[in-house]
Design a protein around this nucleic acid. Sequence first.
DNA 1: GGATTGAACGAACAGTGTTCGTCTACGGCA
DNA 2: TGCCGTAGACGAACACTGTTCGTTCAATCC
Lengths: 231, 231
Amino acid sequence: MPARPRTRSAKTTLSLDAIVAATLALVDELGCEAVSMRRVSQAVQTGPASLYVYVPDRGALMALAHDLAVADVRLPTEADGDWRARLELLVDRAVTALAAHNDIATVGMTGALPGPHILRITEELLRLLRSGGISDAACAWAADLIGQYIASSALEEAMWSRARRSQERPGGSSAEAEEAFAGRLDALYRSLPAERYPTIRALTPLLTGGDGATRAAWKLRVLIDGLLAGA
Amino acid sequence: MPARPRTRSAKTTLSLDAIVAATLALVDELGCEAVSMRRVSQAVQTGPASLYVYVPDRGALMALAHDLAVADVRLPTEADGDWRARLELLVDRAVTALAAHNDIATVGMTGALPGPHILRITEELLRLLRSGGISDAACAWAADLIGQYIASSALEEAMWSRARRSQERPGGSSAEAEEAFAGRLDALYRSLPAERYPTIRALTPLLTGGDGATRAAWKLRVLIDGLLAGA
DNA sequence: GGATTGAACGAACAGTGTTCGTCTACGGCA
DNA sequence: TGCCGTAGACGAACACTGTTCGTTCAATCC
């Protein structure tokens, strides 16, 4: 005697796209760590076991969400300037796309294989570098370096904007002053003894201050300058 | 009537140092994700609840292990050359120290606050940059950039050497060909259609090949070149 | 010797990823 | 129209996870 007959809901049928989209939406609001197979399955109105029809495991699902996050990144065109301007634009778009989805960049740094959209961006990255007259070996390593830069910058920017988000709620829900990374880091620096950490103390306002976009643009410029200096 | 009287073992008493050391050792052999409070507690011969006397939560424990990983990094001296040589040496030592402990660099990228040893390295990093005549604002952002570089390079190198480790066992325990990141990535690149990804295909041997240390040194040189080009 | 206190711990809670075997609804075929 | 095969969906379970609560112990202080 089964508990109750399996009533197939008249809702939209399950699909990989719907699952991945739901996963990314959950990442947006909860962060990667808090996204569980159960929560995803609830979001698409089914049970956890059903997800495994479409996805081998949680890691693969996160990788798909990661790839979806950069799906809308448009490749620069000739109208956007020379190879360097286009390269900077492409990288900036990738960072922005990733940072718009919370934690998701962590997936790219834990050894997930690149999906089709990331490959598309990588291909264009390499093409632009090569068209800039950089040697093949340097192109390969530069792409690696820029990939590292994109992921870590996206993460940093995401934390910065997460801090801003939690600051805009002026104490509504949380009396416990849920101050996010930037604030805690600044407080830590300020609490350091000046005799042991003189340089950190001297530069504290500069270390945590500054607009995220400006920092990112500066870092990327440094990186490309370095590439050109070596060529 | 308690089940059995609490027999305090005559072993070494619990201590924070022992717990953190055990944690780092477990990270070394299992990776960060697989290190649980229960496994750590087993390693120090106690129960999971006992750890919370010394540590507020798992994240803090991992942060302590992360800091311990760079505890032995020695700061370069005047005998090591000018500021640039010393900077490169310091960064290299930090990367090597982190990469020697598997995954642990991930902790530094998920928003953990820096511990004392990381602060010590950061202080010296800033000092060296400043002594190189770089402006204060550039020093602050450069330290950030170099920090990102250290973490991501350590992660990459750790995966590279994990691949090597699993390759050195010539099929002993695993018939399922547990080929790690580098190999899978290379296979992926080789399987791409050449008409859609011509540049990736053209550069495939260069993308996955190369010695880890050489790559790291090259990338760091590019970075510092870029810093100097902007000054 | 008795009270105090911090450390250690057993048990439990709510939640996790994943697997197994069952069931059901829909496709094609007669 | 009736049937069946199969791919998809799912309930239940397993072996875990991080963390908390309340209790018990051993050592210290008065």
